[in-house]
């Protein structure tokens, strides 16, 4: 479904983010990409979203070569990928409901569908009672749950989660991981980038370890080994 073919990303001669990474991700997989900060995890996700271009190599989303895609195809690809970030990246001047609705509106959903799906997504993440709160009125965990609701409301094929628990307390962390597991169980591919070994080891799913821009381990039921 997703295929990274010998992908390298160099920002400057001394800053090599990815170095010849090849990686295939199958539908419905839950893949944790682990490594220290700066290992290249986020770059890998940005390449898939076409937020950045690779210096060499190719990234495929199904049959699309992401970086040869037309702007319109990039939009279509992004609508099939839901994103969750460490810093939540909610729109500050929109309420929880509107943040989630925005993803549907942008994708051209009908008002009637938005009126049904957004409350459902809020219900799923346990925030039905905070629909009309603005992001600055929500806790970190709540913001991340809104972000997850936004990521899944268009029923994407893939959810990318970049350090989704990085800014959260242990309880919120467990809640967020529980949500990601449920999303995966419902049939959505989940790609989780993190440097938190506890949550990776608790998952018992595939683990890809990246060090200095290279894939050094890829275990089907892996653990995050700390050197």
């Amino acid at each position: 479904m997703i295929y990274f073919d010998k992908v390298s990303k160099t920002y400057s001669a001394t800053s090599i983010a990815l170095d010849g990474v090849s990686l295939a991700i199958e539908p419905k997989e839950f893949v944790s990409i682990v490594g220290r900060s700066g290992a290249g995890k986020t770059t890998l996700l940005k390449l898939l979203l076409a937020e950045e271009k690779p210096s060499s190599g190719e990234v495929y989303f199904e049959s699309f070569n992401v970086h040869n895609a037309t702007p319109n195809e990039v939009i279509q690809i992004r609508r099939r990928i839901g994103c969750v970030f460490q810093d939540f990246r909610l729109l500050p001047s929109k309420t929880a409901f509107e943040n989630i609705a925005f993803a549907m509106e942008a994708a051209g959903a009908a008002d009637a569908d938005i009126a049904v799906d957004v409350p459902q997504a809020l219900e799923l993440v346990g925030l039905a009672d905070k629909a009309w709160h603005f992001p600055n009125e929500l806790s970190g965990g709540e913001k991340q749950r809104v972000a997850i609701a936004r990521a899944i409301v268009n029923r994407p094929d893939v959810v990318l989660a970049d350090e989704p628990t990085g800014n959260l307390d242990p309880i919120s962390m467990r809640e967020i991981m529980g949500l990601l597991k449920s999303i995966n169980e419902l049939g959505t591919t989940v790609i989780l980038a993190t440097h938190n070994h506890d949550i990776v080891n608790a998952l018992e799913k595939r683990v890809v370890t990246i060090e200095s821009g290279k894939v050094v381990r890829d275990d089907k039921k892996g653990r995050y080994m700390i050197k």
Partner: peptide
């Protein structure tokens, strides 16, 4: 500008 990049990543077209 951050909001704009989020909107784009969520799949909004430039015109939208």
């Amino acid at each position: 500008r951050d909001e704009i990049s989020v909107m784009k990543v969520v799949g909004a077209s430039s015109a939208y």
